[in-house]
């Protein structure tokens, strides 16, 4: 894990060039240019219909762009998906209810033919990481929503991806659980050294988590501004600091900047 974190290559985690996406007559994305560095945390924020989820799905190769290029870790998006180079978490946890928590975490490895002993060991390690080691044998239905979402994040991390794609994973959680999950996510991202592309519609959440906040506007969905987040050049930030971050002047400045950018996009 630590060698992943320290291996800072010049290769970018995601590279989007002139990406357009049409659904029939609707221009969902227009001229998207965006690069994520290795280990960088980038949030996509904007009102409903601005195409932020579509953009994430294009990176995941779950949607094909109408035009433009999508490179993930230096490969075409399709190849990156086939090579299981990224982990993904959705708004719903999407756990398989007939599998135990540990078996859910093992799923990506199971699909890629990793042996049973190795899967077991990796799942145990990941459940430790998300603080659910005691629930390895439980069924998803026995867990709370926040715990299910943590299992989904552990599952996304199972193949040791260099990129985590997250589509409003905390959208359905209550505020307190959400803040705790944000701190955990930052810790996990730092320990795994993965770059994160994070979709949200919460301004404070985007600012607290991100190196950069990408502000998008709808009709057509495009990037209007990129705001520096709460931790410029502070990849070493401790999760405990997340609480303090909310109190700092830099946090309020960034929140205001994102809010202004969103308002400008609407005007």
């Amino acid at each position: 894990m630590s060698e992943l974190a320290s291996a800072k290559s010049t290769r970018s985690a995601v590279e989007l060039g002139g990406v357009d996406k049409r659904f029939g007559d609707v221009q969902a994305l227009s001229g998207i240019e965006l690069t994520l560095d290795d280990g960088e945390f980038v949030s996509l924020i904007g009102p409903s219909g601005c195409g932020k989820s579509t953009l994430l799905r294009v990176v995941a190769d779950l949607e094909q762009p109408t035009a433009g290029t999508v490179q993930v870790g230096g490969k075409p998006a399709r190849q990156a998906r086939l090579d299981q180079d990224y982990g993904i978490a959705f708004q719903q946890s999407g756990l398989l209810e007939w599998r135990t928590v540990a078996e859910n975490v093992e799923l990506p490895l199971h699909v890629h033919g990793v042996g049973k002993a190795e899967r077991r060991a990796r799942a145990a390690e990941l459940l430790e990481l998300v603080g659910l080691a005691d629930f390895a044998g439980s069924r998803p239905a026995q867990l709370s929503g926040g715990m299910q979402q943590r299992v989904a994040i552990a599952r996304a991390l199972a193949p040791q991806p260099k990129l985590l794609l997250m589509d409003e994973p905390f959208g359905a959680l209550d505020e307190m659980t959400r803040e705790r999950m944000q701190a955990e996510l930052l810790r996990i991202a730092r320990e795994s050294g993965a770059a994160v592309l994070f979709v949200t519609h919460s301004i404070p959440e985007a600012v607290v988590l991100s190196d950069r906040v990408v502000v998008m506007t709808p009709r057509p969905g495009r990037i209007t501004e990129i705001v520096t987040g709460r931790r410029p050049g502070r990849a070493d930030l401790e999760p405990d600091d997340v609480e303090d971050v909310r109190e700092t002047a830099a946090f309020f400045t960034a929140v205001t900047a994102v809010r202004e950018a969103l308002r400008k996009g609407h005007g």
């Binding site: 090579d83 993904i88 959705f90």
Partner: peptide
């Protein structure tokens, strides 16, 4: 979506 993302 999950199974597609896993290239199942």
């Amino acid at each position: 979506d999950l199974m597609t993302s896993l290239a199942a």
